[in-house]
Design a protein around this nucleic acid. Structure first.
Lengths: 152, 152
DNA sequence: TCCATATTGACATGATCATGTCAAATAAGC
DNA sequence: GCTTATTTGACATGATCATGTCAATATGGA
């Protein structure tokens, strides 16, 4: 029996401090993992947002999905376009807001990143019970909703 | 009964994506909270590291405690020193590595930040059970240990 | 003591991010 | 239709971060 533990507010403080550290460590972990593919964590995330969308979307929509700045996503997508990983298609509904699409080369890079990621993610998740991971995810998702509402 | 849920690796993926979002939201939340005090999340964290250390430490030690870059912490601490929130004291063991100490003004700023933080943290933690928060914290701390070991 | 190594703060540089502005294009209200 | 507000990409600027280098200092081993 671990005892009563900390008060909720202190527990949240410790959670937050760990969150900051894990965030940085995870980004560095991802960077090392996809560096051989010419990717970074940020580029990988952008590719993921493009894949996750059923239909090609303009950059501003991808930025919203990512919770990131429009301008930064624009820069990343432009870089990816310069390297042939994504291409721009005309948008019938908007002359300036082109649609971002994966090229075959971009699809290959994304699939290669996933292939490198999966076994490492399984190793990293090993040792945790399904309940523990699910609870941690649910807490973070609930925090996200509250913070987003608070930031209105 | 929520059912079997996702495979552990996918659960970790969702956890990670939520983590990135919450990290950014929490930093913005903290920035808004301590802005009236002339602080930022980064400055507040630096002050916290100074307070958390029992003895005054050089900047490089604080950076290690924070898991941050030596150079960035140095810049932040220099800024804090310029505004009179911290002061440098001679280090008997090292002529160049001065010891960072809170000034009374810095202590006031830190206490004021905590005073603003506590009720908001309690409100943010409300609705979670102690077990949920503790589990989330433990998962993140375990992830941190694994990622730090992996980054060696 | 002497020398190799590690630590520390200062400095420089490029990358990334946050923010604001602008013009073009679209959407909504009257 | 016409006017106004919103969206979108391009651009600029400053802040922050990541990284490397350097000289001064401290530490440990021979």
């Amino acid at each position: 029996m671990p005892g009563p533990g900390l008060p909720p507010a202190d527990e949240l403080t410790e959670l937050t401090l760990s969150l900051f550290r894990v965030n940085n460590l995870m980004l560095a972990w991802g960077d090392r993992m996809v560096a051989p593919l010419g990717l970074t964590s940020a580029r990988w995330q952008a590719l993921g947002a493009i894949v996750a969308a059923e239909r090609p979307q303009p950059v501003a929509w991808l930025a919203r999905d990512l919770g990131a700045n429009r301008q930064n996503v624009q820069r990343i997508v432009n870089d990816l376009e310069g390297e042939g990983l994504v291409s721009f298609a005309p948008n019938p509904h908007h002359k300036r807001a082109q649609l971002v699409m994966l090229t075959p080369k971009g699809r290959e890079a994304y699939d290669a990143a996933i292939a490198r990621y999966r076994p490492r993610a399984e190793a990293l998740a090993a040792g945790f019970s399904a309940d523990e991971l699910a609870t941690a995810r649910q807490v973070l998702q609930a925090l996200r909703l509250r913070l987003e509402a608070d930031a209105d």
